[in-house]
Amino acid sequence: MTALALAPLERRLVDECQRDLPLEPRPFAALAARLGVEEEDVLEGLRRLSELGVVSRVGAVVAPHRAGWSTLAAMQVPAEILPAVAEFVSGFEEVNHNYEREHRLNLWFVVTAPSAWRVDQVLREIEYRTGLAVIDLPLVEAFRLDLGFPLS
């Protein structure tokens, strides 16, 4: 099923960890108790999953538009200047995802900042510096938001 050979405990960790990690002084000990293993086994397993890139991080998942603002933006960029425009866009620290996609609108990126004002400023600056229109597609409602992904 997966591209990687994961030990049984590692597979269970991926599934279990996507649910809430308890907010207590030793969360990995609580998780270990849930799985019937030792705290150190959980920590070792998570370190290996991080090294393999299977788990990108174990941390706080922040609700959209509660602690700041973000938007999905799209641009139609002529092929000959796409590398330069993509590099310019990626250069903003507020841009955390930037993808080339097969479509008339061929550059898609996410802009995240502490305020809507700053997000808008980044979009306007990209338009001004590239001379190309940026389509602003902020989230209106989340029907599902990264709720986790079953391994089994």
Partner: peptide
């Protein structure tokens, strides 16, 4: 609701 949960974030690509 500022923090939705504290959890592992998987990388779909690495999972196959």
């Amino acid at each position: 609701g500022v923090i939705r949960r504290i959890a592992a974030v998987p990388n779909h690509y690495a999972l196959g």
